[in-house]
Design a protein around this nucleic acid. Structure first.
Lengths: 342, 342
DNA sequence: CACAATTATACAACCGGTTGCATAATTATT
DNA sequence: AATAATTATGCAACCGGTTGTATAATTGTG
């Protein structure tokens, strides 16, 4: 197995008649080491097949240059955009990212937090699981002064910044748009209302209805996990309604397109019979026919801003505690699935 | 910042008048420590807010219980299925996963390999980037006896097992299916032919044509990165062809649906004018209309098998070198986008 | 050439668990 | 009660970079 013994800076030092200190500094491009010596060190290191020992380094220096990220799942194009944005900023600042998934389970999320904690991440960015309750599982981080930042699905905590979009406004705009297209009986398909994103959109939905003089019907709010199967289930449920709704606002494009597909299979015309609007502006919304109206959610920017915020905090340039939340711009994109008026 | 000093096993030992050794063993549930002592240790540990120091542990024990994974991107549902499968198996065997993306760049991939290497992963699973050439960037791992396994996009190496599907057969079946539907002028949209997956599918495509007595036209093979934009570009290219092709086999569902969407916008009927078949069986293939014929690619199983194979090797139960490649079952799923015969 | 200023290298303690082996404490055996 | 067997705990070295401070080597100044 791991047969050959590892080469250490001591081996290099011995070979060159230098001290380990000098070798360590030479490899790190420390200004106090002469160019010649650095070259000698690097040459021998390459020759011997030296590899840097992150553990020894981290143990002594008590820094890891690692940022943890915990997300519910990495299956959406929104999430991969967020991660791409984070990775770009982190790399530029020479931080590494450790990514783990909670798979929407609060329990697994807590385990992940603990692992990150033990792995001494310098900071943590989290979008919480579907059923996470309270912030107690994060307290251990804050007690040790490890900065914690939430994005998208956030929790309220005085020491944490949140990066979000204006979900209330987005929900309002989406609903208002459907109303403007002549819809009067609008369904909102959303998630666990304990999550800020869904609660805020639901509020937006309710206020838009109210402002249009429409009475919000609690039965018109469907709560589920917003995946493909949920979309299919919702379609079945809608088909049994009498009268049928004339508009559907879904908090997730994937769920929306699956729902639409079943309804269309059953002869329902979109947008003529039922107008649809989704959320996220996933690529699928542009490919499906009719093209899906949606709310644009700037994932890449969200990732960039989250990582940037955390790193400036870590570098002591700007405390994370000074900001409560950062709200990104989101906008409505009207496409064919909702356009009933020419 | 990181204000409070960390609690160590020495602090616990002092508080209980025990040796650090006993505390270390107690926390690890070592059989030589009595139940009573273990309880005392764990209680005080919790009380003091002790956290395990992974670095000190790894440094001394020279094991990390960590497996690295490098993938091109985590934006496809195929990839997230693979990762989910890997994570399930790894967790059950109490291994951690470190995941990083090459973003399809061989250069970034090499950096990632090095980082994994320095982080002393116990093993590495890789699906190579679009433009990776040669295996030299992996040699350092193999020299140290760190097992390396490829999945999906593989490289040929005598010491590495590959987990794949039969891409040749899949390409053959897809093409044969189109031929059976009456297609005679079939386009194959594929990726870099240096990658096994694309080369094998192209071979399958060519042989299926040959076996049907059709001469393969090199101009009918489009090579690109198979993303959304590529799908759009291919559609533009197809629209300029004269005569139009009557069948298109795309190595990726995402690319396929984007291509189809543009063609349909331009009045082309699918499957009547052009029959389509994709690859991967992504969720989008079921939602799009017409539903997309495709090749089912068992991502979750691939992840499970890859992780399982690597872990049994790490546990010394079965060497990875004894197997060359493991081929998973894949099958054709015929849907509306290709069905021209009742 | 003497002395200061600057540059380059070394010393030694440290980070916090881990582990083989020795020793102490407890229980079982005759 | 004495001795063997078993169980529980401790000793001390070790893993491999890091860092404040001291010392040595080189260069500059008058």
């Amino acid at each position: 197995m791991h047969s050959k013994k590892d080469v250490t800076i001591y081996d290099i030092a011995e070979k060159l008649n230098l001290s380990p200190t000098t070798v360590s500094r030479g490899l790190k491009d420390h200004p106090a080491i002469s160019k010649k010596t650095k070259k000698r060190i690097n040459d021998i290191a390459a020759e011997l097949g030296y590899r840097f020992n992150t553990f020894a380094s981290n143990l002594r220096s008590k820094r890891t240059n690692t940022i943890g990220v915990i997300i519910p799942r990495m299956n959406s194009s929104f999430m991969s955009a967020v991660l791409a944005g984070m990775e770009k900023v982190a790399n530029e600042a020479s931080y590494n990212l450790i990514i783990s998934q909670s798979l929407e389970s609060a329990e697994k999320e807590a385990v992940n937090v603990k692992t990150m904690f033990n792995n001494r991440v310098d900071g943590l960015m989290v979008s919480v699981a579907y059923d996470t309750v309270g912030v107690s599982q994060f307290e251990m981080l804050l007690e040790k002064g490890i900065p914690l930042l939430f994005f998208d699905r956030t929790l309220d905590h005085p020491q944490c910044t949140s990066i979000i979009i204006d979900n209330y406004k987005s929900g309002y705009l989406a609903t208002q748009h459907l109303i403007a297209q002549g819809c009067k009986n609008i369904i909102h398909i959303t998630g666990n209302l304990a999550r800020n994103v869904y609660a805020d959109r639901q509020r937006g939905y309710e206020y838009a209805l109210k402002d249009a003089g429409i009475q919000a019907d609690p039965n018109n709010t469907f709560i589920n996990v917003l995946d493909e199967q949920a979309g299919i289930d919702c379609a079945q449920k809608i088909l049994k309604m009498n009268p049928l709704p004339d508009g559907v606002f879904v908090d997730n494009d994937t769920c929306a397109v699956n729902c639409m597909a079943i309804l269309m299979n059953n002869g329902i015309r979109i947008p003529e019979d039922i107008a649809f609007i989704g959320f996220n502006n996933d690529p699928i919304s542009r490919v499906i026919r009719p093209t899906l109206s949606t709310i644009n959610y700037p994932g890449f920017e969200m990732g960039e801003i989250a990582a940037h915020k955390l790193i400036t905090h870590l570098n002591g340039q700007q405390s994370i505690n000074s900001t409560n939340s950062i709200i990104l711009r989101s906008e409505l994109i009207a496409r064919d699935s909702s356009k009933r008026i020419k």
